[in-house]
Deep mutational scan, measured.
Amino acid sequence: MGKSNSKLKPEVVEELTRKTYFTEKEVQQWYKGFIKDCPSGQLDAAGFQKIYKQFFPFGDPTKFATFVFNVFDENKDGRIEFSEFIQALSVTSRGTLDEKLRWAFKLYDLDNDGYITRNEMLDIVDAIYQMVGNTVELPEEENTPEKRVDRIFAMMDKNADGKLTLQEFQEGSKADPSIVQALSLYDGLV
């Protein structure tokens, strides 16, 4: 993909415009910024974590950033290329609610087996709590990752089998306004 070129080839721009919710001009602008920050044309896990640390200076986002990195890194080569970056950004910032929920499901399904187990969710929720640090005051019933996961599973795990399917996750998330709101945070920002 033209590693350190400051412009993408027209056919690449066209393809990314088809695969995302961005215009050709927006794709070019994002590429310019991506190459400025990642001259090699790729972003590794350490660089990704560094970006998260800028956004969450009062907590430790390392663990959460690693989980997000793994979802962005579609081809699992340990690096995020621009096409992976822009497609994930498109879903998280401008995707439909169902697209965002499928993306979030992939984030929580750490072993990619098609289910979110209690332990997988606990890993992610714990990482989120570490990331936000003491900057967020949580209600008593959610002031630990374990309590939050218990509440989520009580609401979403309809067949009580200890794991969530994509359908259970989507339906449960849509029924909880706070989850829908959290997924909409990026709307309109890009």
Rank of each mutant, 00 (worst) to 15 (best):
G2Q: 00
G2C: 02
N5E: 12
S6F: 02
K7T: 07
L8S: 09
K9C: 06
K9Y: 14
P10I: 14
P10R: 12
P10F: 15
E11R: 04
E14K: 10
L16G: 15
L16Q: 15
K19R: 12
T20A: 14
T20M: 04
T23I: 13
V27H: 07
Q29C: 05
K32L: 04
F34E: 01
I35P: 14
I35R: 15
I35K: 06
K36H: 01
D37K: 02
D37H: 05
C38T: 06
P39R: 06
P39V: 13
Q42I: 04
Q49K: 03
K50N: 10
I51Y: 02
K53Y: 05
F56H: 14
F56G: 02
G59C: 09
P61I: 01
K63L: 13
K63F: 02
F67H: 01
E74V: 06
N75T: 09
K76S: 01
G78K: 10
G78D: 06
R79S: 01
I80D: 11
E81W: 01
S83R: 03
F85N: 03
F85C: 09
S90N: 13
S90F: 04
V91Q: 12
T96W: 12
K100Q: 10
K106F: 00
L107W: 10
L107Y: 08
L110A: 01
L110M: 10
N112C: 07
Y115A: 14
Y115P: 02
I116P: 06
I116M: 02
T117V: 13
R118G: 09
R118C: 00
R118K: 06
N119P: 00
N119D: 05
M121K: 02
D123T: 08
I124T: 06
V125M: 06
V125I: 07
D126I: 06
A127Y: 07
A127S: 06
I128E: 02
I128W: 00
I128F: 11
Y129F: 05
Y129K: 14
V132D: 06
T135P: 05
V136L: 06
V136Y: 05
E137C: 07
L138Y: 02
L138W: 01
P139H: 13
E142D: 15
N143F: 08
T144S: 11
E146A: 05
E146F: 13
D150Y: 07
R151T: 00
A154T: 05
A154Y: 00
A154C: 11
A154P: 06
M155S: 08
M156S: 03
D157A: 11
D157V: 12
K163S: 04
K163N: 10
L164V: 08
L164S: 06
E168Q: 04
S173N: 11
S173R: 01
Q181I: 04
A182N: 06
L183R: 11
S184M: 05
S184V: 02
Y186F: 11
Y186S: 10
Y186W: 01
Y186Q: 13
L189V: 04
V190A: 08
V190G: 06
